[in-house]
């Protein structure tokens, strides 16, 4: 029991931290490119630490993100839960890939999320193609190996099996 609580605290504090990093106000220097750290964290936990995450958990954190960003309530929630489900389903194939293939798979997951967001935007009548959005997922995919190792390190340290 205590072990499970400890692990849950680790996962949720990581999720909160990445949410904060996602909505952190950035200086203009970054040209509107902001990395969705929270999506990366959701992909990581859905692939590597299955028992501690879930579709509902991803949905809840997405809802929090929607509230914080002031967007359409449920948009990020939907995207994150779908991303979480996808990365769970493909985890056995993906986990053994070398880094460059992992980056491609991550890019695929993230662009799937972007497509959903584009689709939702289309429904609400504001179809704009935003280059920064796609640039930022490209950068996120490039960062993925480093991010994964870092989280893995933290996980080895904090999570008890």
């Amino acid at each position: 029991m205590n072990k499970k609580l400890n692990n849950l605290i680790f996962v949720w504090s990581m999720m909160l931290l990445t949410t904060m990093m996602t909505i952190m106000p950035l200086p203009n220097f970054f040209y509107g490119i902001r990395i969705e750290w929270i999506s990366l964290a959701v992909i990581f936990f859905s692939m590597m630490n299955v028992s501690l995450m879930g579709v509902i958990a991803a949905w809840a954190i997405g809802l929090l993100l929607d509230l914080l960003q002031g967007g359409l309530l449920g948009e990020n929630a939907l995207i994150l839960s779908v991303i979480s489900y996808l990365s769970y389903r493909f985890r056995f194939q993906v986990r053994v890939y070398p880094d460059w293939q992992l980056m491609i798979v991550t890019l695929f997951f993230l662009s799937f999320g972007n497509l959903i967001s584009l689709w939702i935007r289309g429904f609400s009548g504001r179809i704009i193609f935003i280059t920064e959005e796609w640039l930022s997922i490209l950068i996120a995919a490039l960062i993925w190996p480093i991010f994964m190792r870092l989280l893995q390190m933290l996980q080895n340290y904090f999570v008890e099996d």
Partner: peptide
Amino acid sequence: EKNYSSYRLIFVIVISCILMYQ
């Protein structure tokens, strides 16, 4: 894995759609 059952995903998608519409 109960946490990742497709039923849950469908449930969550439906809830999100209702929320977004509202």
